[in-house]
Design a protein around this nucleic acid. Structure first.
Lengths: 203, 203
DNA sequence: GTCTATAATATGATAGAC
DNA sequence: GTCTATCATATTATAGAC
């Protein structure tokens, strides 16, 4: 699956443009993740995909627009994977649904890692216009989790209970980007250990 | 307390230089936190503290050295606070020591926030030379937590158990930088809710 | 679709006056 | 300690040829 086929905002693009666009997005994600938004150089990015800097502007109107698309994909890929994973197993009890969502979130994060990392790491530093454009996808993904947690905690849970558990889970999972090493770590083991602790019933 | 008085590497500095140095560090921390390392402009930074760009080089040999000092303070302030807090209460049982450490970590993070945020947010993007210089302070702080967790989990815990619980705790706490709003959130409430879940005995 | 050439501007760092 | 002036170099973005 190409990255632009995952983006419904680009219907029926000409094949060659689509392929070049994908290449740009892929390399941009890698570069943003590694060096940050400000230090992503369009000259270097163009060189990596075999073109000159000016040619990028045929595919994206600005650096901000390119970054927006990279970061939007970073959320959408994870969000869509989690949603699909939950729909594939509709009869699980709430706690198992949460564990499954955590598993998919972490695995998608660590495999589609450049896009998601770029989002998570760069969001605080990206121009306000970019942050604004990302607000709706971010909110959509938050709502998936809030709904899951509400089911899990039951009717006596306050909105703050729900928010705080969501932050703890997402924080514990996203922080893996700073330490996870595929050679030594196992995503399933980590997720199990976190889920065992964070999802147990209150005392 | 001035930031440079907290830095034992600068003994007996001339008062005027020390004051200017502190101002530079404080504003640099604010700017790095908000805009990232690459986008921190030395010209703007100098203007904020009322000098010209060239004058900064009397106090710091390079942008990298300045960033290193900001980020080092970011860890040291938290690390020293946690260590002191544990030494002040030597007789607490392991679980209470952990909860206390979490509390101090979060509160220090959220109050000395610019230095710590600059560290947490910018570390992935900072030049390798800067990352190298920070490795020892980071390791020192990690060891405090590993020791605490080893006591808490008991002798049957593997090194992986210890590492993963450390990552989950630090991740859940550090992520607060991205959502905590002093007007609506209470650090003590969040820390209690996280500690209640993450520190319970295994089933 | 991609190129060349360039505009307009910002950057970190240094040298030397004061 | 701070300033001025400057070097060398990077940046995003645009216009127009092909």
């Amino acid at each position: 699956m190409t990255v632009s086929s995952a983006n419904p905002r680009t219907p029926n693009p000409k094949p060659k443009a689509a392929a070049a666009r994908d290449q740009i997005l892929t390399h941009a994600a890698r570069m943003m993740r590694a060096r940050g938004y400000a230090d992503m150089s369009l000259r270097e990015l163009a060189a990596e995909v075999g073109m000159k800097a000016g040619s990028l502007y045929y595919h994206f109107p600005s650096k901000e627009a390119l970054a927006t698309d990279v970061m939007r994909l970073g959320v959408e890929i994870v969000s869509d994977a989690v949603q699909a994973g939950l729909e594939d197993a509709p009869d699980l009890p709430p706690r198992a649904r949460m564990a499954r969502a955590m598993q998919i979130h972490l695995e998608t994060l660590l495999s589609a890692s450049d896009f998601s990392s770029a989002h998570i790491r760069c969001y605080p530093f990206v121009p306000l216009t970019v942050q604004s454009e990302l607000k709706s996808v971010r909110k959509k993904y938050d709502k998936i989790w809030s709904a899951l947690i509400e089911q899990h905690l039951g009717p006596k849970a306050t909105p703050t209970d729900i928010r705080y558990l969501r932050y703890a889970i997402i924080g514990a999972l996203n922080w893996s980007l700073e330490w996870f090493d595929p050679a030594h770590d196992d995503a399933a083991v980590y997720v199990t250990s976190v889920a065992d602790r964070l999802l147990r019933e209150s005392p």
